[in-house]
Design a protein around this nucleic acid. Structure first.
Length: 429
RNA sequence: GGUGAGGUGGGUGAGUGGCUUAAACCAACGGUUUGCUAAACCGUCGUACUCUGAAAGGGGUACCGAGGGUUCGAAUCCCUCCCUCACCGCCA
């Protein structure tokens, strides 16, 4: 959620930023509506505070009168207070209404893109920030997509997953399951070496948490909801990890706070069909290692680039061709100020698959989280939050299987062998 | 799931309707004293919103798990919910 003060103080930057996200002149009117409502809120608040002040003063007097036995005078005052209370009640109702209108508008505003963010609305408008230098791998004509490889070598059983649960819930088995476990361990170890504290969070969260990180109300339909207990299955570890510091005041010297966690992620992903969703390309449940940071505003962009290096190192070491995209305003997530996507080239399908998204949210998330620190002048400041996937497993597995296939089987990258305990997947395993 | 006891500031903990502006102690921070450490003493010590002021600051309002209610007035009384602890039941 944006701070209203930013709308007032840096209106030009807000307008330029929102235009990058494709806001029309008409949609930009919301800014003035918000400022206007905020003015009303202040006036109403001041009015109410004045009334309550009067009530408190008179109540004190009544107490004094009763004590000195002046009952009649006290009862006189009671009548007066009653009138003030009625006005106060009406004012409070009005104030509540204004606040909720204000809130309803404010949640419609996405984060202001960083000045470097390219404008544009479509994926084609994203700018390639860094690209695989060598030639992309060319496979034999009879090379297979990963879903066929997974079946051939008995690594993933999509049908059985669908039978047990539904489509989009793959069942990994044998070396397929062990490869998953190896990747998770490798990613966590790498994060650990980079100074991230490892967390095993709850996989369900309450609605307060989902609101705080912005999944609600924006993406309600994308989360699985347990109605009876009003809990949501997490779509990413970002939600529980970031909420660890909801409402917290962090000592400035404790920044940055670096967290990592492996969790399954659950996404309903309504409205996607066709080749895009085949195999592991898009599933309802997948595994991911997430990295999250709470950072001092002065260092958040430096940190963002460290996180890029972190993810790039993982992909390099897995010998996977990848490119980094600098997302355009329209393709960025609602809460992000700057996002880089990592895409891995999956040779069997001859397509790029998104495997990581690394973002700086600046204060947008922290504002709703109310995660702050005290600066050197003792003033409260919102922290910057950042996060990234390091990495999302399902599509990495897809790319590994496809890119490393030969007629005999699938080669395991060197770096993973200590984790898998095998270096090759062949027929009959 | 059942029964019981609880939830007060960074921590411990007092507070059963107005004398609370939430005591006291501890921790933290600043200072004085001292040869250093320590101790003693003095001071500071919440958050949000808002008004005022150039600023330093000052005023007001709200907040004692959350939300409602009673009352002129609620940390205190009532209702609902959440959480914690103990025991019982069930259970990996």
């Amino acid at each position: 959620m944006l701070e209203i003060q930013i709308l007032r103080d840096e209106k030009d930057r807000v307008i330029t930023g929102l235009k990058k996200r494709g806001f029309t002149e008409e949609k930009l009117l919301i800014i003035d509506q918000i400022i206007d409502l905020d003015d009303q809120r202040k006036a109403s608040q001041t009015h109410l505070d004045g009334l309550l002040n009067e009530r408190n003063t008179l109540s004190d007097e009544i107490g004094g009168l009763f004590k000195s036995g002046q009952k009649d005078e006290a009862n006189q005052l009671k009548i007066k207070v009653q009138a003030i209370k009625d006005t106060a009640e009406a004012t409070e109702t009005e104030l509540t209404k204004i606040k909720s209108q204000l809130d309803n508008l404010l949640v419609l505003l996405p984060n202001i893109p960083h000045s470097s963010v390219p404008s544009g609305r479509l994926p084609e408008d994203n700018i390639v920030y860094k690209e695989w230098r060598a030639d992309l791998p060319e496979l034999a004509a009879d090379a297979l997509p990963h879903w066929e490889l997974a079946e051939k070598y008995n690594l993933i059983d999509f049908k059985l997953g669908a039978f047990i649960t539904g489509s989009g819930f793959p069942l990994y088995r044998g070396k397929g399951a062990r490869l998953q476990r190896a990747l998770i361990s490798y990613f966590l170890d790498h994060a650990h070496r980079a100074g991230f504290e490892e967390i095993q969070p709850p996989l369900m969260v309450n609605s307060d948490s989902a609101y705080a990180t912005g999944q609600l109300p924006d993406k309600e339909g994308q989360m699985y909801h347990m109605e009876k207990d009003d809990l949501y299955m997490i779509p990413t570890a970002e939600v529980p990890l970031t909420n660890m510091y909801r409402g917290q005041i962090i000592a400035e010297s404790d920044l940055p706070i670096k967290l990592t966690g492996y969790t399954p992620c659950f996404r309903r992903e309504a409205g996607s069909y066709g080749a895009d969703v085949k195999g592991l390309n898009r599933v309802h449940q997948f595994d991911k290692v997430e990295i999250v940071q709470f950072e001092h505003p002065s260092r958040s962009y430096e940190t963002l680039h460290h996180m890029l290096d972190h993810v790039a190192h993982l992909l390099d070491s897995l010998e996977l061709p990848y490119r980094i995209l600098h997302l355009c305003g329209g393709d960025m997530g609602f809460t992000s100020a700057l996002t880089y996507d990592f895409e891995v080239y999956s040779a069997g399908q001859r397509r790029w698959l998104e495997v990581s998204s690394v973002s700086n949210f600046e204060t947008f998330q922290a504002n709703r989280l109310k995660t702050r620190y005290k600066d050197e002048h003792g003033k409260m400041q919102l922290v910057h939050t950042l996060n990234g996937s390091a990495l999302a497993l399902a599509r990495i597995v897809a790319a590994l299987l496809e890119n490393n296939q030969s007629a005999e089987g699938i080669r395991i990258p060197e770096i993973l062998i200590p984790y898998t305990g095998f270096d090759f997947i062949g027929v009959g395993n």
